[in-house]
Design a protein around this nucleic acid. Structure first.
Length: 179
DNA sequence: CATCAAAAACTCC
DNA sequence: GGAGTTTTTGATG
């Protein structure tokens, strides 16, 4: 795929996240530390890495993307602060049909609530695919905004988390979830 | 390109 | 603790 992704960063009290945008919306979000990349000097709100050949659009970032990024930043910071975000950017994660179904289902989990892998599996009409649901969660390219951290194992166990279990615990605690 | 085998953020007995 | 299910991914022919 000839991704002409736009990569921007979001500075939070928990580190700097990296967001990538496709032409349709937010495609990926990475935790801090997951990738060591050099700070682009002094750009604060974010910097485009792959600007188009022509600097037709200001700073190489279309207004559309900047608007999405603003929503992403706001939503992310809200969740990190333990408050419910109001507006989301459009999401465009790439994955198999099954994975998209799982992610879509996860997005329906209300703020501060949790579901088990089994419940998600039932919701997408594959009650026995609980193991596969776990796999789809791990493949989620947009953590936090797609609340994979709100999915726990059965019997209140925490399960796992791609970006490190520490994150999962912290996020749940801030949302007021009691394990 | 078609098939096989192994692994995974699970669940239930 | 062990077996059962489903999907994804990488190796094999």
């Amino acid at each position: 795929m000839k991704n002409q992704f736009f990569r921007l960063t979001i500075a939070t009290p928990d580190g700097r996240f990296v967001a990538r945008y496709s032409a349709k919306g937010l495609a990926e979000l990475d935790f801090p530390n997951s990738e060591a990349l050099v700070a682009p000097k002094r750009s604060e709100g974010g910097a485009a890495e792959r600007a188009s050949p022509r600097a037709a659009e200001a700073n190489g970032i279309p207004a559309k993307i900047r608007a999405w990024h603003r929503a992403t930043e706001s939503a992310l910071k809200n969740i990190l602060a333990g408050t419910e975000p109001r507006n989301f950017p459009p999401l465009d994660p790439s994955g198999t049909v099954f994975q998209q179904a799982v992610w879509r289902e996860m997005r329906k989990i209300p703020f501060g609530r949790t579901k088990s892998y089994g419940e998600v599996a039932q919701a997408i009409d594959r009650p026995k695919a609980v193991r596969a649901v776990g796999g789809a969660c791990g493949a989620n390219p947009i953590p936090i905004l797609v609340p994979c951290h709100r999915v726990l194992a059965a019997h209140g166990k925490i399960g796992g988390f791609g970006g490190g279990l520490g994150w999962k615990r912290k996020l749940l605690t801030r949302e007021g979830v009691i394990l």
